[in-house]
Simulated scan of single mutants.
Amino acid sequence: MTVVSGVRVVAGDRVIDNGFVRIEGDRIAEVDASDKSENDGHTVVPGFVDIHVHGGGGATFTTGDPVDARRAARYHLGHGTTTMLASLVTSPPELMMSATKAFAPLVAEGLLAGVHFEGPYLSQARCGAQNPAHLRHPSLDELSALIEAGEGAVRLVTVAPELPGALAAIRLLVDRGVVVALGHTDATWEETLAGIEAGATVGTHVFNGMRPPHHRQPGPVFALLGAATVTCEFVADGVHLHDGTLAFAASVTGPGRAALITDAMAAAGMPDGEYELGGQTVEVAGGVARLTKDGSIAGSTLTMDKALRRAVGAGLSLVDASRMASGTPAAAIGLGDELGTLRAGQRADLVVLDEDLNVQRVMRAGAWV
């Protein structure tokens, strides 16, 4: 048994100023107020859940290399991310298949919560840093083969709903238990709503990689923010979104439909310089990653602890920001009953933060890491 006490505990929608968390095995056994008066100034929040991350610490998920995947997962774990999807980028069919097969054992092991395909079924006009050479229309055969090869590893797929065959692909994925996100899209408001009606329940880094909103042509941004069934991803790094945009968008969705993500690439935690993403060259300067060829934002160098601090700095409460970093993304990928909140019965994933919300210790499944 482990007891973390003398701390402020962020447990769901409440803050226990002088609380404790009791862990038995890999589970949380109890969360409550302490009868002791001391508080060491630390705060305990649930382990972060990043449902959109391409790499970090000099390692990438995008090549399908399991050794690199372990390095990237280890790097983000050190920053409090106890649950993550391995996000791939637009790639040839052979790489998508080989990466799926390579990562399936890591998912079965519990290192990864699943695989996220950000592409290749995306808009040419809104592809951003995705490699346009490998974009294609949705294929039911390709998707079925990937799902079969993954044996449960494929958990999230981003699709542009306006593409030919997209709605049928969304229905297939949902029928097979895969969560669908809408993103990298030039869809109209109506086309976006059609994708939601077909079963999509996530918006991929909303505002980024999609037709911008206009008061006469609302497009995907307004449709996603306004849809009660959709969880909207936000990259809280001050580059992808202005802090005012983040605060406004979160006020529209509420913390129950807003998920902080990193969209991090291999350069996270590494020096400025030249990197690779999906076969394209990326230049990182001042911690900002952009494609060398046209300056498009190419993921980020963000970590989830930085995203949490940025959200709080933008005016969100710690309770709301914590939910956006843990409980909401966990629920978005179907893991809300297992993790993402500090409550009895959940997996014992927690992060100890200092007064400035910097990570001090990380626990995953009851073990300090």
Rank of each mutant, 00 (worst) to 15 (best):
S98R: 13
P161C: 00
F207N: 10
Y75T: 04
E151H: 14
A125H: 15
W189H: 15
L146P: 00
V178A: 03
F103T: 07
A149C: 09
G119C: 10
A104Y: 00
L193W: 02
F103P: 01
G152S: 06
L88I: 05
H184P: 08
D186F: 03
C127A: 05
A129F: 11
V174L: 04
V157P: 01
G199L: 07
L182S: 00
T81C: 13
L146N: 03
A198D: 08
D175C: 03
G195H: 07
D175A: 15
A168C: 06
E118C: 04
S144H: 12
A194Q: 13
T192A: 09
V202H: 09
V180S: 02
T192F: 00
A145N: 09
Y121G: 03
T185D: 01
D141L: 14
G114E: 04
R74L: 12
Y121P: 10
P138M: 11
A168G: 08
H76E: 14
A153T: 08
C127S: 08
L173V: 13
A194V: 12
S144E: 13
L88G: 09
P93S: 13
A200Q: 02
A187H: 06
E197W: 08
T90Q: 03
V67R: 03
R126F: 13
G165S: 15
S144R: 14
K101L: 13
P138C: 07
A69H: 04
T185S: 07
P138D: 07
Y75P: 06
M97P: 01
L122T: 07
P120R: 03
A149P: 07
V115H: 06
A187P: 02
T81E: 05
H76I: 14
A166E: 04
A125C: 12
A198G: 11
G128T: 12
A187E: 01
G114S: 12
D65S: 09
T201W: 02
A133G: 09
P92W: 11
T185H: 02
V202Q: 10
L95D: 06
G165R: 01
G152L: 05
A187L: 03
R126C: 09
E94Y: 10
L112M: 11
G195T: 08
G183W: 00
A69M: 11
V159Q: 05
G195N: 00
E94L: 15
R126A: 12
S139N: 04
H205Y: 11
A145T: 14
L95N: 11
S87D: 01
P66L: 09
R136N: 10
R176N: 03
A145I: 06
A99G: 05
T90V: 13
V174M: 05
F103R: 01
A73W: 10
L106I: 07
L77D: 06
A108R: 14
E94K: 13
A187S: 05
F117R: 00
G110R: 13
Q124T: 12
Y75F: 15
G195A: 07
M97E: 13
R155K: 15
A200K: 04
G177R: 03
R155V: 08
S123V: 10
E94N: 07
G78N: 11
T192V: 14
